[in-house]
Design a protein around this nucleic acid. Sequence first.
DNA 1: AGAATAGGCAAGTAGCGACTTGCCTCTCAA
DNA 2: TTGAGAGGCAAGTCGCTACTTGCCTATTCT
Lengths: 94, 94
Amino acid sequence: MADVFRALDDETRRLLLDELVARDGRTLFELCTTLVTRHGLSSSRQAISQHLGVLEDAGLVVTERRGRTKIHHFRGEPLAAITQRWPASRKDTP
Amino acid sequence: MADVFRALDDETRRLLLDELVARDGRTLFELCTTLVTRHGLSSSRQAISQHLGVLEDAGLVVTERRGRTKIHHFRGEPLAAITQRWPASRKDTP
DNA sequence: AGAATAGGCAAGTAGCGACTTGCCTCTCAA
DNA sequence: TTGAGAGGCAAGTCGCTACTTGCCTATTCT
């Protein structure tokens, strides 16, 4: 469970999750070009690959090899543990 | 918003939130002794004070000076932004 | 087969974050 | 009013992590 919090504590990884939620099932290169063009952050391919590895270790991303490409899928279940551990808002649990 | 994720990315701070949710409105010394006795982590008073400062910067803890003591209160509203940004589970949003 | 595409592995560097140490301020009680 | 309790501030150390660099593997296309 600590892996989930560690994975979320990085703006690049949070942007990667945003992009996967916006359009699921993308390759590493697609995510690289999108982060560079749409968010202006000049990260190398290896850096983003390592970020995706952290997200995968946390269970927030699952991958699927398709030929020589690697498809990445968002997976939100680990996020449920956060609001189950602490009440998100007093008014949400009447 | 990045402060919330940074604040959650630490086991000591997560335990502090646990303790405040279990019993709200505690002083620094009460939290220190509780973490040491119930969780076995031998952190100094200054370390825990700095952790509470990070939680306060993130808006997850609000403080209230009462004489020479400082009362700490849990505040869960910032956590709502997490599940609002990404869907926590596919079955929760039908 | 050979070249280009898509990605992986591993070591090394730099900078941030957790923790300590030492000293200081403020409040309350005797 | 003096001492003890509760907490704050600031500098310094150490370890982790994000990123780079360089090279390697596997798949597809001509």
